[in-house]
């Protein structure tokens, strides 16, 4: 099965306003960054060259893995999307 395809099969109603907001300075100083590999939706990516974390909330499955895995509490906001927005499962 093609991994890139996996993400295209889930439906979302994307909110322009992000429900998760990071303080990237905390990520830069982090010694673990378990969020990058643990997030099932690949929302987090770390650039070794730029020493910079990038986060995209678009494909977030709202599972909470990052919330639990981040031991530095890098979130200035972590809540679920506004009502009606975010992931919409049909038959799981």
């Amino acid at each position: 099965m093609n991994i890139d395809e996996i993400f295209d099969n889930t439906s979302f109603t994307i909110d322009r306003e992000a429900h998760i907001v990071l303080d990237y300075d905390v990520c830069t100083g982090c010694d673990n960054r378990g969020c990058v590999n643990s997030c099932p939706a690949r929302c987090y990516s770390w650039s070794e060259d730029e020493q910079k974390m990038t986060f995209v909330h678009d494909g977030c499955l709202e599972c909470g893995t990052c919330y639990v895995v981040c031991h530095r509490n890098a979130f200035t906001r972590w809540r679920y999307p506004r009502g009606g927005f975010g992931v919409a499962y049909r038959m799981t």
Partner: peptide, 14 residues
Amino acid sequence: MVCGGRLQEYSAHL
């Protein structure tokens, strides 16, 4: 076991 199937949806939960 999954051969012949088609991926419909991917999901995650804690």
